[in-house]
């Protein structure tokens, strides 16, 4: 069986700064993998290497068995099957919510306007913003924007969804709506790679949790193992700070 994501000996430099220092890991189809770790640990860079928004300096990245680091790889074609949700939403502000979800369907998948609109409305309804189709992103709350962004990615029928700290830019009271949508996706069997600070979500939804620090994977395993009973001191001290910030 091919892995949904396979990463081998991945290194990434920004100038002289080595952000990823040899990462090896896999995501199996249908799995939800949460990547946790302190800021600057390289977890967002790792995620961005999976759809080659960052070009790895060294190492190999496979998605569904296709090597994206191969010089002849058709990255644009590969990205169609990989949805990405950003911390800052990155909705297109000149388009309505509906048009945001339609444009790539029309321009990349060459779906007809009619078909794209049907798919868009379905997905917007699914993430709970079906009544906001004609609003521009500027009129939506952060939580609504992020859900439109999720719908935009889903409309492309991805096999894999990447989430880059999807709730970090949200007001606390809006986090729940977005997490609920992600939980629903996980239950439907979507393969998900999620960079997050939401330990509750990771504990309940993830099949596997990966703890990164200083550009390496320090520890990985089931949520019970990594969050419940971490083996490494670095993991323990990170979790202490996240779970009991005032202590």
């Amino acid at each position: 069986m091919t892995h949904a994501v396979e990463i081998r000996e991945l290194h990434k430099y920004f100038g002289d700064n080595e952000v990823l220092k040899g990462i090896d890991f896999t995501v199996e189809p249908g799995q939800v993998v949460c990547v946790i770790g302190p800021s600057g640990s390289g977890k967002s860079t790792l995620l961005r290497c999976v759809n080659v928004l960052e070009t790895p300096t060294k190492g190999r990245v496979f998605v569904n068995g296709l090597e994206l680091t191969h010089p002849d790889a058709d990255i644009d074609a590969a990205r169609r099957h990989v949805g990405m949700v950003f911390q800052q939403f990155n909705l297109f502000p000149h388009l309505t919510a509906l048009q945001n979800v339609m444009i790539a369907q029309q321009r990349v998948l060459n779906r007809s306007k009619k078909e794209a609109e049907i798919v868009a409305r379905e997905n917007l309804a699914k993430v709970g913003v079906g009544d906001k189709c004609d609003e521009y992103p500027g009129k939506l709350s952060g939580g609504q924007q992020q859900r439109v962004a999720i719908a935009r990615a889903l409309a492309m029928n991805p096999d894999l969804m990447l989430f880059d700290e999807p709730t970090s830019a949200l007001d606390p009271e809006l986090v729940g709506d977005v997490l609920a949508v992600m939980r629903k996706l996980a239950e439907e069997g979507m393969t998900m790679l999620v960079v997050t600070h939401e330990m509750g979500f990771a504990r309940e939804v993830a099949d596997r949790v990966v703890f990164m620090d200083g550009g390496v994977i320090v520890e990985e395993g089931t949520p019970t193992e990594v969050i419940g009973d971490p083996k490494q001191e670095r993991t323990r001290s990170f979790l202490r700070r996240v779970l009991h910030p005032e202590g």
Binding site: N51, L53, N90, L91
Partner: peptide, 10 residues
């Protein structure tokens, strides 16, 4: 904006 567009396969 460019990243979001590229991530959709454009």
């Amino acid at each position: 904006q460019m990243e979001a567009a590229r991530s959709l396969g454009m």
